[in-house]
Design a protein around this nucleic acid. Structure first.
Length: 552
DNA sequence: CACGGGTGCGCG
DNA sequence: AAAGCGCGCACCCGTG
């Protein structure tokens, strides 16, 4: 429970924890005590049971997530925590989890690797870890930013568990209707009727009665036999070709994708009692973005978003940050010209108005190219114009790319650093600089260096954008709690979805306007937290709707 | 039969 | 190699 003076120690049965947490949080609610910040090894291990017991936690330190940040950050380089040999806090979460009952193969593997796995508590000492982390932050080159990052990351961990607990309101009936409309009735086995008919059509038009349309190699061969000069079966490539089979084949691929990714099987597995409950993994991506495990929540196709429906008497507030990454780049680089281009309007229109490019689509493709490292094509051609108009912003991503090419780390706004390239990368660079290096060695080394440079170029922007989004969401969470203090999570406005630069709040209809206001205020606050007084704006849209499909 | 790489496509 | 970043997931198919 933190490094407070006047320490109290209590050992209690697990079953009594919810009551203790509730008492401490409740005391803070009534102003009788300081708000606790719960310190634990892993939010995903502790918080779900508390929520099930009806207990919410306002603040925490997720030691596992914070450790990962501090271990690798350039701001804490040289601290004891960063230089220590790898320990239990560096072990992947999966290896520490209890193997699920019945998964004997997993158990066997586990025992093979670690004959006598010690108990969790022996391996991870949360007290000493907390002190080590506090020392590392205090000794860092920017404690303020790191503290903010660790707080935001930990808030994200709480939110991830709360999102799963609440679930995204989801109408299985609407989803089923959509599937039936597009694919025909659900078959007990084999392809749905519409897909079967399309498969028949494709086979006929290619004169290949045995063709398996799900096998790209088969399809490619059949296309070539029919005289279609395709080199792959990717949709974007097929679309450019002329042949009577192309249209039904594309339709087959699109519907087949819907069936396999979000068909009835997905519905059965992931939607229960009117809620879609994916497993969010905060910090699951190197850049600090979230990942999901199962359910594919971050790839929910636009096609099915109409099935996300508010409960009767409730609304969804669907909020989206406009042009988040270029705006984050603006703040990172302190580019006044780009800040002006984004002030009070669509950033891409602002770039057009600045005279740098002719039309919005060009502004967008040029900005994406700058942040992703495009060298050829339209995007590459637009780069010089962008560089002339916004030299500071472009220099920032170019510098990040050069650092990556040299094999160095780069660091986000709040202090998350990129990983170093692996041994294969080092070996390739060494081979190229050896006295007996071949032209092929040098080509390979240069190519890999550029690849890594594109990664680090994008890392600074994507990681900082992820930090903005965390701050936005954490701030919003606090404001939502304040709208209805003391109520259970799902009885008052609460977050139900997060998608990189987008959130959805489920709210009683009569609070929707307040929620929308909170969404805007939180975005402004996130901008100040990351970039202080620098005048970069972060406009967000907040649509009050009954269904996700109505937004945008 | 299990696995893992490759392919393709959904999202930002 | 779509034009470049970050992902997850389902499927095919060759390999052991």
């Amino acid at each position: 429970m933190g490094g407070d003076q006047g320490e109290r120690t209590a050992v209690l049965p697990l079953a009594e924890l919810p009551a203790l947490v509730a008492a401490e949080e409740g005391a803070a609610e009534e102003g009788a005590a300081e708000r606790p910040r719960w310190v634990w090894d892993d939010t995903r291990a502790w918080y779900p049971a508390l929520l099930r017991a009806g207990v919410r936690v306002e603040r925490c330190v997720d030691l596992r997530l914070c450790h990962a940040i501090l271990r690798n950050s350039t701001l804490t380089a040289g601290t004891a925590l960063a230089t220590a040999a790898p320990g239990p806090w560096d072990t992947a979460l999966d290896l520490l989890e209890e193997p699920a009952a019945g998964h004997t193969a997993h158990t066997a593997l586990f025992e093979l690797d670690q004959p006598e796995p010690p108990a969790l508590d022996d391996r991870r000492d949360s007290r000493s870890e907390l002190f080590a982390q506090e020392a590392a932050v205090a000794a860092s080159t920017d404690p303020r930013r790191l503290r903010l990052l660790l707080a935001a990351e930990s808030a994200g961990a709480l939110i991830g568990v709360e999102l799963q607990h609440a679930g995204l309101p989801y109408s299985a009936d609407r989803h089923d209707d959509l599937l039936t409309e597009l694919l025909g009735p659900r078959p007990t086995f084999g392809r749905p009727p519409v897909l079967e008919e399309l498969a028949r059509d494709v086979r006929a038009r290619l004169d290949s009665p045995d063709l398996n349309p799900d096998s790209p190699p088969d399809v490619l061969k059949a296309l070539q036999r029919a005289g279609v000069m395709a080199t792959s079966t990717r949709s974007w490539e097929l679309r450019k070709l002329e042949h009577p089979v192309i249209e039904p084949l594309l339709r087959y691929k699109k519907l087949s994708r819907l069936l396999t990714a979000n068909g009835w099987t997905w519905l059965d597995a992931w939607v229960h009692d009117g809620r879609f409950r994916p497993d969010y993994v905060p910090g699951g991506v190197v850049t600090g973005r979230w990942a999901t495990r199962g359910g594919g929540a971050l790839q929910l196709p636009r096609q099915v978003r109409g099935a996300v429906v508010a409960d009767p008497g409730w609304k969804l507030v669907v909020a989206d940050a406009a042009q988040l990454e270029p705006r984050v780049l603006t703040g990172l680089s302190g580019d006044q010209a780009m800040a002006a281009a984004g002030r009070g309007k669509d950033l891409y229109e602002g770039i057009v108005a600045s005279g740098a490019v002719d039309e919005r689509a060009h502004a967008k493709v040029a900005m994406l190219g700058a942040m992703y490292g495009a060298t050829t094509g339209e995007s590459g051609r637009l780069m010089p114009r962008l560089t002339r108009a916004f030299p500071r912003a472009i220099r920032l991503v170019e510098d990040a790319a050069r650092a990556g090419e040299r094999g160095e780390k780069v660091t986000s706004r709040l202090g998350r650093s990129s990983p170093l390239p692996g041994p294969a990368w080092d070996a390739a660079q060494s081979a190229a600089s050896a006295s007996d290096s071949t032209a092929a060695d040098e080509r390979r080394a240069r190519s890999q260096a550029r690849d890594w440079g594109r990664f680090t170029r994008n890392f600074v922007v994507q990681a900082s954008a992820a930090e903005w989004a965390l701050c936005w969401m954490a701030e919003l969470r606090n404001r939502l709690t304040a709208l209805a203090p003391g109520t259970a999570l799902t009885e008052s406005p609460h977050l139900v979805y997060f998608l990189h630069d987008e959130v959805i709040v489920h709210t009683p209809a009569d609070r929707a306007d307040e929620v929308a206001a909170a969404v805007h205020a939180s975005a402004a606050q996130a901008g100040r937290l990351l970039f202080g007084a620098f005048p970069v704006e972060f406009p967000v849209t907040a649509a009050i709707v009954d269904s996700y499909g109505e937004a945008k």
